[in-house]
């Protein structure tokens, strides 16, 4: 039988939490001994391992290890056509089984890594902030002119990852894609691949070196441009092996790394590069224009909520 939350509800309900100070105090005093311990552990980990001043969901050693291993498999899910050895188990006559294998595997991997990152005690403030930023990203995704290749939610993911750190960036990226797909009814085999790629966009935004002012803005804008371009190139890869478009642009099993790289380059250049370059440029430009006020707003919210 699960413990009934009612008595504890009454206990913490005495602090009619309307402003930030009472929320913080009730978060520390109202919990069980166990949750106080996790809070303290989280704070210690923050002081030790984080580079951002407002890091939420800092990556501990364990979750960093899991994230690294899972990212390795995730990278294989995109780039397997280049490395598949002839005679391997996934190398069958009709080459379209391997993509479905990764479509089935990736949701489990996303679940494991997100659970692992959030296992270190994610409190109500972090949940609310994560949900709100993902809502902003999902609304931008729903509104954004998808046909022009613009991915406006990247601004939120890049800047959120920058301000709140690596672990938050990864979870924010994948949650934004997930919520956007659920809101617009766009769940499909592409979603796990998008979740991984957008998670990496947030993760690497949180791993950029520390700097301030114009340097920071220029660095983030350049990063956004590169991320927008590489995202497109990675995401083509999941459906590229399905195609027998024509022998010169499609995946040829057993043809080797060089040939397939060349075929993919031609495929990318003739199909989606025309959308990927505008996406990269627009993301960079948007970060340049809106980066400063958005980051100021995020940091102010972090101060009000008294993170780290």
């Amino acid at each position: 039988m699960t413990p009934d939350p009612a008595p504890r509800l009454a206990h913490s309900g005495t602090a009619a939490a309307t402003d930030d100070a009472t929320v913080t105090s009730s978060a520390v005093t109202g919990g069980e001994p166990g949750s106080v311990a996790t809070n303290r552990a989280a704070t210690a980990a923050q002081a030790r391992g984080s580079r951002q001043p407002h890091a939420i969901l800092p990556l501990r050693l364990r979750s960093a290890l899991v994230l690294a291993l899972v990212s390795l498999v995730g990278l294989a899910a995109y780039t397997w056509p280049f490395f598949l050895t002839p005679g391997a188990a996934l190398d069958n006559s009709h080459g379209s089984d391997a993509p479905w294998f990764f479509v089935a595997l990736l949701p489990l991997l996303v679940a494991v890594v997100v659970a692992e990152i959030s296992a270190g005690g994610i409190d109500a403030k972090a949940v609310a902030l994560l949900g709100m930023l993902a809502a902003v990203g999902a609304a931008l995704r729903a509104l954004g002119p998808g046909a022009a290749g613009l991915e406006p939610s990247f601004i939120v993911i890049v800047l959120g990852g920058r301000v709140f750190g690596r672990g938050f960036g990864f979870v924010l990226g994948s949650l934004t894609i997930f919520a956007g797909a659920l809101v617009t009814g766009g769940v499909g085999p592409w979603m796990p691949f998008q979740m991984f790629a957008a998670g990496w966009v947030g993760l690497f935004a949180g791993m950029l070196p520390r700097c301030h002012g114009r340097v920071e803005l220029a660095m983030l804008a350049g990063y956004g441009a590169v991320a927008g371009l590489v995202y497109g190139g990675l995401l083509n890869l999941w459906f590229w092996p399905f195609g027998a478009y024509s022998p010169e642009v499609s995946y040829i099993p057993h043809a080797g790394l060089g040939v397939n790289l060349h075929h993919y380059a031609v495929f990318w250049a003739t199909t989606s590069l025309g959308w990927d370059i505008p996406r990269g440029l627009l993301t960079g430009l948007a970060v340049l224009v809106a980066g400063r006020p958005v980051m100021a707003a995020l940091r102010r919210a972090a101060r009000r909520a008294n993170f780290g």
Binding site: P5, E32, T38, A124
Partner: peptide, 17 residues
């Protein structure tokens, strides 16, 4: 989001860890 966090905290969210 800050208001929502306050509301969740006051209703005992996450206290049963």
């Amino acid at each position: 989001s800050v208001d929502l966090a306050a509301a969740m905290d006051s209703r005992g969210y996450g206290r049963t860890t």
